[in-house]
Design a protein around this nucleic acid. Structure first.
Lengths: 373, 373
DNA sequence: CTGAAAGCGCTTACAG
DNA sequence: CTGAAAGCGCTTACAG
């Protein structure tokens, strides 16, 4: 607790001797102020070069003779020197921070994406700073902008649904801040998006249910303003159509990705006559709502009703019976998004970067062939 | 996309005229480089004071004449000047970042705590940077240390269970980094802890179950090495004893805060003869495991078995029937922890800061009086 | 390939 | 109460 005291050592006002010639520096080789970490000046002195040259090896400039580089690197390693990101940031006019900007996905999504971003920055000098916001507030955009300008962020990762907001991305561009959107389709430059292939995912659900023998399948959609809702519904309808099954309007209800909306949606769907034999809720929360209604109606799952969700969140495996659902490679998406920010030169290339890992169906116990009529 | 080009304006090498007298500065008052934000120098020039004086008003030094302060503040407001945290950090030798360091609590816990910390830093120049780690790795401590030293963090918030690690806090102290532990009892200086009153919480559960008429109550504990497990079990046992009920050893099983361990624990407890009429699982995940087993055994909840959880995570309200559980004010805990870092002068004071909001029981549908024998 | 100077935007330590 | 100088730890822009 008495740390704050030890700074009184060596008053700075003592007039420095008139800078001894290079050789003299070599005479006191261990010269790093105790308690303080080495700086670029220490390394320069100990390696008998200018700090600019040290700077060159830090920044991997090719304009350094190999012998010089090796000698400097040895000193760097010896003292475990790490450049100060704050100082570098100040000089570069860019910090070494990556922002994670989101409105309101579920906690698991945020954490997974964050871990992915952290995977990408591991062993680098970058760090991840979080910035939740509320897209309904009037100063939403300006708030994000203040954030990125103040911190001079290197870039931000935009999670859905605000990743769809073009006004936001324009503001970021104006603030000279790189962004990468996690989204569902090519709504921007390849270097600026990472797409989770939801279309593919829901097609898998469609094929699975149809192969089980379901023909009358209810669908609980997300809010119609969300890209994810559009992609999922579109993809599902298409895949069904490919199997000669039409998703009629009465079988589609719009939800809001919430438990309550799942309950409401299921109530509508299950009051249909004949009832659907399966329901695909386009996220796990809504699927949990379907469980609730089925339970109230005395319908057994999967005996009377098959259910599929989307997310594979903490809920899915805990529901009874455990829910068959789609798992998105969110951590991977986060990792790739951060990677694009760190390596802008490669960001736009390889299509593999755009569709990294595919989402896939996690089959548990909530589906079976429909009961015979 | 052509942003990187516009920096070519005004070559710096042009020799500056020999610094015109003060008055001249007032002659070009709107002088802020276009496209760039105002700096302390701009404000100083426009307010006709030295930058040091501007610095004083930024730092709220009392050593500024009110008239001067007002004049400077007016200029600051006019140009929306915000000091650069990176530059300030460099000069202060401390960044304006607060770290959130955790091993492995559930996603909801992390996110809630983070939002709390963000509540505290809102409208300040601080930001929150996340740092998950793995306490089982040999370089766990040194990894955290590198993180805080490199970024010169203002402070870190330690989430359970690593908040109990004294070796870690010693390393942080050595690195001159303030820390605040979110924990369960007074294991450190008041300024260094925020405690969630788990003892109180579990006492509430005990009283509730006893008042319902339960006498034979099973308990699924957390890992015995965890402080939370000790506090919760101790508090529960004590509260039961106060009601003349003994928590015998056969009624206690140790779990690992996981779903699977909840399943195992419930299997043991429910094979007892006579069976407990209620089970308190010391977190929601384990409670979900109990649901699973009860379901398999054909036991109805709460008809044949009452269940209580702990956390009120995303699961609790979605289980069938919805789970009665303890809600911890995690966001509040996070907020207060961050507050202590930002205001070290007040950190140790008010006992209100140590026990802020109390946890409380959220009663849903998983409990009722025991069936008559 | 290497370095001396000036600068990033702020603060501390002095001086007045 | 106010300011000129030096410094935080790095980089850019030049020069050689």
């Amino acid at each position: 607790m008495n740390r704050s005291r030890k700074k009184a050592t060596a008053p700075r006002a003592v007039p420095k001797p008139p800078a001894p010639p290079k050789a003299a520096a070599a005479l006191k080789p261990a010269g790093i102020k105790p308690g303080r970490n080495a700086t670029i000046n220490d390394i320069a002195r100990l390696a008998s070069v200018s700090k600019k040259t040290v700077s060159r090896v830090i920044n991997q400039s090719p304009l350094v003779q190999e012998a010089t580089r090796a000698r400097i690197q040895a000193v760097i390693d010896k003292f475990g020197y790490v450049p100060d990101p704050q100082a570098r940031g100040l000089a570069f006019r860019k910090s070494f921070l990556i922002g994670l900007v989101y409105d309101n996905p579920n906690a698991q999504y945020i954490v997974n994406c964050m871990e992915g971003a952290l995977d990408a920055v591991r062993n680098s000098e970058y760090e991840v700073v979080v910035h939740p916001c509320d897209r309904k507030k009037p100063d939403f955009i300006s708030g994000v902008r203040r954030f990125v300008e103040r911190q001079k962020l290197r870039g931000v990762i935009l999670l859905p649904p605000i990743s769809e907001n073009d006004e936001l991305t324009r503001a970021l561009e104006a603030a000279d801040c790189t962004y990468v959107r996690i989204t569902y389709t090519h709504i921007d430059d390849p270097a600026r998006i990472v797409i989770s292939n939801d279309r593919l995912a829901v097609a898998e659900v469609a094929n699975y249910l149809v192969s089980l023998g379901h023909k009358r399948i209810g669908y609980i959609a997300g809010p119609s303003g969300f890209r994810s809702a559009i992609e999922r519904l579109g993809g599902f309808r298409e895949a069904l159509a490919a199997r000669q099954i039409t998703l009629t309007n009465e079988l589609i209800v719009e939800g809001g990705y919430t438990y309550e909306s799942g309950v409401t949606g299921a109530e509508k769907l299950l009051s249909l006559n004949p009832r659907p034999t399966a329901i695909f809720a386009s996220n796990d929360e809504m699927a949990a709502g379907v469980y609730r209604v089925a339970n109230k109606l005395g319908l057994s799952i999967p005996g009377d009703l098959s259910i599929v969700g989307f997310d594979d969140g903490p809920l899915a495996a805990r529901l009874l019976p455990p829910l068959t659902t789609i798992k998105l490679p969110i951590r991977e998406l986060g990792r790739i998004a951060a990677h694009k920010i760190l390596h802008p030169e490669a960001a736009g290339s390889t299509h593999a970067m755009v569709t990294p890992l595919e989402p896939h169906l996690v089959i548990r116990d909530s589906c079976q062939p429909p009961a015979k009529a």
